[in-house]
Amino acid sequence: MTKIRDLANSLHANVLFFVSPILLLLAWAWVCSAGIFPEQILVSPAGVYQTAHELWGSGELQSHLHDSLYRLVLGFAIGSLLGLVFGVLMGLFKPIDAFFASTFNALRQVPTIAFIPMLVMIFGVEETFKIVVVAKAAFFPITMATYDAVKGIPRSYFEVSKVYQLSHISLVRHVILPATVPPILTGLRLALGRSWMVLVAAELIAADSGIGQMMEMGRQMFRIDIVLVGVLVTGLIGFLLDRSLRAVETHLGRWQQS
């Protein structure tokens, strides 16, 4: 019974989901056709679509997207791997925790963005700099999430498993993973969002390719349509990244319950 109601609700919600975006799109189109703002201030949806089409047709958009996503994936992989290992080590071993905690917490306070001038001075403006920025942005939230997750496993779980003489594999499979994976996934999702934002900012500041650079170039060349395409694309990517990790979260949540 509840299932049917849920289904109906979600269908309802899905329809409603499009109401306000479509209203906004219509308002945008109307404002443009009414000529309230000059074309160089606000480009119409059709104009933006046409520019996106041109950028896609010339392959420019794909090449910028490719560069940005490559940086994101590589930097995020490095940062999250290090964060996972580091978080587990700090969570399991008190001395390691004590050794790194103060430095870690101090560094965590500094926004990644504030490191950009320093990183540019050290690594220059090439790929290394952007990958380091993304990795740094991912590392801290993932370390925190992993650390908290490991710390959050109740001691009694281990005792119970000892009583039942669970093997190491089943300890990991049935106790540690279910207890730690959900919070770590949430950490990954937050970290991914931050990494994406920091990458776009870094590309705006210094790069020769990437979506951020496409927007910066559009700004320099007074092409508001290109800037708008960039805003839409970065938003869409941020949205998709968030949604797919959320999907993984719910999927694993279900798996965990069964």
Partner: peptide, 26 residues
């Protein structure tokens, strides 16, 4: 593509603030 349009401007309230501001300028 369509529903990502909303990312182009901040929440409606901000849009209105912006419109008012720009009307003022113009």
């Amino acid at each position: 593509m369509n529903f990502s349009i909303k990312s182009e401007t901040p929440v409606i309230a901000w849009l209105l603030v912006g419109l008012a501001f720009m009307f003022g300028l113009l």
